[in-house]
Design a binder for these strands. Structure first.
Lengths: 162, 162
DNA sequence: ACAATATATTTAATATATTAACTATTTATA
DNA sequence: TATAAATAGTTAATATATTAAATATATTGT
């Protein structure tokens, strides 16, 4: 369904490139709402699941990740990580320890509870997301990824020339 | 650039459908950040610009839109509209009046200032967004829109069967 | 060795977005 | 006509995300 139909707009969007951009943003919103609904049953939010996955799959060995590293991987502001980790620490999903090798850093690691929750969620999530995306075949998924890459590359290029 | 390169992940994403979904969400994030940078120079935020455009192009005649209508068109919660309109009213971009025909409703309309700001921003925005999306030709933009539609259609279908 | 610069994290204020509960008004039903 | 149900908007609490400023620590330059 076209965007203007979905959102019950009175007029269609009159500029193709604006429609494309709004399609990306709107689809992302729909994905996030759906994911939030999914994760809610496990007591997680979208972003918390993302953190758990990063801690499991993106930390070298078992050493955990710094907040700055999480900020970079999630493309969010460092100030945001503080409050996010505060809430996850409170929920006992992660632990935060000062890094003895560099006193500026904290190291964030999965707790046992965090691992257990992830062990429960992850297989269900993987299955579900494959089912959801099966509306596109593999070729289409690759096409989508490539088109979105081009947009991001164009944005990055212009931002670098600023 | 692939997602894991862009975000400096230590490992690539190991599930195609997850990569596709993260690509949409991440591209949306990049688009929003870039747009926020653009609108900041006009004293607007992304969402405020969206509201101004809806008020200009989506209200029948000059009567304005209700908050519920804005909520629907923006796919956000009504509670959110209250604070958003509060801020925009304070900035004199919109005015809020009670609807005499139905005392439950407010009507939101553009002020002169709101129109003036939009008159200044819109042509620049249109030009800029076409330039940004010129990394894709028209055919590719249509392809992108269609692929994203399929994803949303799939999501909607499953949500309806819940 | 010391000063300047850079970096990690936190705090405070602001913006966006959600849910739940509430009030006022309108619509639907008996 | 009266009651029940639905709807618009608001308030409060919570989550996500930003900028700016501050503090502590590490790195770089002289």
């Amino acid at each position: 369904m076209r965007i203007h139909e979905e959102l019950h707009l009175n007029q269609p969007i009159d500029l193709l490139s604006r429609e494309a951009v709004l399609s990306v943003v709107h689809t992302s919103t729909c994905i996030k709402k759906e994911a939030a609904f999914f994760f809610n049953r496990f007591g997680l939010t979208n972003v918390q699941f993302n953190v758990l996955m990063l801690l499991r799959y993106q930390s070298n060995s078992k050493e955990g990740l710094s907040q700055a590293r999480l900020s970079e991987m999630m493309l969010v502001n460092g100030a945001n990580i503080t409050t996010l980790i505060d809430r996850m620490e409170k929920a006992q999903l992660v632990k935060r320890t000062a890094d003895p090798a560099d006193r500026r850093y904290n190291i964030i690691q999965l707790t046992k509870k965090g691992k257990d929750v992830l062990d429960k969620v992850e297989p269900v999530y993987r299955n579900e997301i494959q089912r959801r995306l099966s509306v596109l075949n593999e070729q289409q998924q690759h096409t989508l990824i490539e088109l979105l890459e081009r947009i991001r590359d164009g944005i990055r290029e212009r931002a670098e020339n600023r």
